[in-house]
Amino acid sequence: MPSGAGREGTGGGGGAPPQSKKMKFAVVVFPGSNCDEDAYHAVTDVLGQHAEYIWHKDTDLKGADVVILPGGFAHGDYLRTGAMARFSPIMREVERFAARGGPVLGICNGFQVLLEAGLLPGAMLRNDNLKFRCEHVYIRVEQTDTPFTLACRRGQVLRIPIAHGEGNYFAEPDVIARLEANRQIVFRYTDAAGDVRETANPNGSKAAIAGLCNEARNVVGLMPHPERACESVLGSADGLLIFESVVAALKTGAFGGSTGPALQTVR
């Protein structure tokens, strides 16, 4: 078991103001996850919310308001990234949660798991340069009507680190066209000025895609690691916007169940 499994966070010394009701984040832990504690730290210590680790063999999300599939190498990434994690028992519950409209965030390997599970379209290939890229990159927020970008401005450029060898997003041209038409491309790799350039694309992703959402917009996956960029001491606090967004989104009541209004109506 991971060291902190079962531990419940209370958001001790965080900078967030006290709130009447804290949101509960489920951080799913697969064998080989290694960014679970970073996500837990960002949610509790920085954001001031509740978080709980959920082991991949669990079959209950324990009443979570938000689900995070963290980065790492689930099941060693043997065969293909995310291919085996898709069959973990907790994924059935994550699918049900997502189908009900609950907000799900897949970060890096978590994004790869969402792709393999079919919760998001497309697949990941080896980076076109064949290198494991570990550096800060710039991504532009393309859509703000998702639970994880609500607090961003459209066109806002975020500086967030990446760390992956297989982040080369691929989908057939007709799928990319559909993603564009449905405004499902949530983040694109750009330069610091927010311009899409080949030199700013670290892995060869089609359409410079760094992150996308499903048609219902409640499931978001991205390759960069916002949880590693939530405190300025780490070089950037831009990632905090992603987590603040979902707290704001949940307060609107638009997520977490099938009865809430569409997010577009409450922006």
Partner: peptide, 8 residues
């Protein structure tokens, strides 16, 4: 089911 990903 597992060995190949039909997307790629």
């Amino acid at each position: 089911k597992l060995l190949a990903n039909p997307v790629i």
